[in-house]
Design a protein around this nucleic acid. Structure first.
Length: 480
RNA sequence: GCUGGGGUGACAGAGAGGCCAAUGUGACCGCCUGCAGAGCGGUUUCCCGUGGGUUCGAUUCCCACCCCCAGCUCCA
């Protein structure tokens, strides 16, 4: 069975066939690191994390590159306004690189907490200045860029004549409304040959802090350039999958693609599959700071187990606009608990002599793969796993060995969805032995019919987030 | 205006031309429990935005209409 992915270049689901058998080059547009990661960012990164894990699970050797933008992303119109990093640094009274260092460190911490697989490379724009300048040079040499007052623009019209300029899909440049956002100012428009032209290299204003010498001016690179250059450097002139948020369908990715083609001039497609994830809304509305529906990962991690957050991400489809809310997160928590309960309960069983799960294991592997092969249908995969968990719950009489393999399989597949399960948690809690002691006392009370006292112990432990569950095999507890 | 995605049972959210519409949450009943929880069983909900068409048969295909969301150089 093979994976089918929705390719924005053709607007259709296509069979995924890697360039080289068994290996996959994957590039994901990462974050401009001037502020904290929010749920929306995390949702998108989780999608690529699942893609990476799934491909790996299917036996591919995945090389995953995700960039970190630390210069060149402007706050305002294309090629105008302030550099986002500089602006944020100034507000916080930090050196730009100090802010970047700080944010990058935090970013890694949060990515790690969210159980994101470590990427092979996280290249940064500032570390690739030489390569970017070389790229601009070759684009000029190839006739697809021109300089105006120290700033170098990409000549979209020329490029479109020679190679076409599909906007990753059916649209063309002509269908765009010039300055639809009403943010492109007159003088920049007059400097460009065409309003669609975008900057490769930008001459720095005197007060600009982050700037580098180049043949054209003391300046800095345009935002789109870094991804072209770093992707080509680490994954080659042509690679398999390039991912990003829907917002990159235009202009970031078409520009990136055009740059790559203009750089090499082989005319070939630099990327085989362009994959984009939809943005989430929060409480039904577009997330924004002013609406007060803006959640950072840091905030969420204060109140929620990362596994809950990952369960939420796995429960939605990466290409569907989905709504995030604390209620939705609560439901994800319940869903996760169902899995955890199954694993915990099944582990405590002694087992019998049946083998009903044997066939069901074959079934779930097939169903899981079928769902995931269909453009990473994680909601469907998730529902199948829940069904499988339900089957395990009914298989108390299966052989112990089979039960063990079934729970391992469940964990394995959940891990492909990025959901971590750590069943050993209970015993690692500080003071666990005292809880055991209390429960032993409670058991004696129960045997003597002193239920009121027994309940006091249970209720009190509950207040301390210790959930006590009585089972035929005795009392069991876990942290909530 | 252009482009894309949607409208499914109380809610969230899958699905497929027919195998009487997954899964989770909520509610209710039962089993199990001293009670609770977890688990199990059952109930709660279907002709799936509206109107046409194609078909032996459509919620799934086609057409029209209504509504919603997103993008169109800030954004994952």
């Amino acid at each position: 069975m093979s994976l089918r992915l929705y390719n924005s270049l053709t607007n259709s689901k296509e069979d995924f066939v890697p360039i080289e058998e068994d290996t996959v080059g994957l590039y994901s547009c990462g974050q401009t690191i001037y502020e904290d990661m929010h749920v929306g960012n995390a949702k998108t990164y989780a999608a690529w994390d699942i893609l990476n894990r799934y491909l790996t699970w299917k036996g591919y050797d995945v090389f995953h590159v995700m960039n970190i933008t630390d210069v060149g992303h402007l706050t305002d119109d294309a090629d105008e306004g302030e550099d986002k990093v500089e602006k944020a640094a100034r507000e916080k009274k930090l050196e730009p690189m100090e802010l970047v260092t700080r944010q990058v460190r935090k970013w890694y911490r949060e990515m790690n907490a969210l159980n994101m697989k470590v990427h092979n490379i996280n290249p940064r724009a500032t570390g690739h200045m030489v390569e970017m300048i070389e790229a601009v040079k070759s684009i000029i040499e190839n006739g697809y860029a021109y300089e105006r007052n120290g700033t170098v623009y990409f000549d979209v019209t020329k490029f479109a004549q020679d190679h076409g300029y599909p906007i990753l899909g059916k649209r063309t440049v002509d269908s765009l409304e010039v300055g639809a956002g009403g943010r492109v100012s007159e003088d920049k428009l007059s400097e460009k040959r065409s309003p669609y032209d975008f900057a490769l290299w930008i001459k720095a204003e005197p007060e600009h802090l982050m700037k580098w010498p180049s043949p054209w001016s003391l300046g800095y690179p345009g935002w789109h350039l870094e991804c072209s250059v770093m992707a080509a450097k680490y994954l080659g002139e042509q690679f398999d999958i390039h991912t990003g948020g829907v917002d990159h369908i235009f202009p970031h990715h078409p520009n990136e693609r055009a740059q790559n083609m203009a750089m090499s001039c082989t005319g070939g497609e630099p990327v085989r599959y362009w994959v984009h994830s939809a943005h989430i809304t929060v409480n039904g509305e577009k997330m924004s700071k002013s609406k007060g529906n803006f959640y950072t990962v840091e905030e969420l991690l204060e109140n929620y187990d990362p596994a809950v957050i990952r369960t939420f991400f796995a429960s939605i489809h990466y290409r569907s606009q989905s709504d995030f809310s604390l209620e939705a997160l609560e439901e994800s928590k319940k869903r996760l608990e169902r899995f955890q309960n199954t694993l915990r309960t099944a582990d405590s069983w002694d087992g019998g002599d049946r083998d009903s799960l044997e066939d069901l294991m074959k079934w779930i592997r097939k169903e899981f793969e079928k769902a995931m092969d269909d453009d990473l249908n994680t909601p469907l995969a998730m529902s199948k796993l829940l069904e499988f968990a339900g089957h395990i719950n009914k298989s108390q009489d299966d052989r112990k060995e089979i039960l063990g393999r079934a729970t391992e399989l469940l964990k394995e597949l959940l891990e492909v969805l990025g959901i971590p399960l750590d069943p050993g948690q209970d015993n690692m809690v500080d003071g666990g032995e005292y809880i055991d002691l209390l429960l032993e006392i409670r058991q004696r009370l129960r045997e003597n019919g002193e239920f009121a006292l027994a309940d006091i112990i249970r209720d009190d432990l509950a207040k301390r987030n210790v959930v006590v569950e009585d089972t035929p095999e005795g009392a069991r507890w876990r942290m909530r």
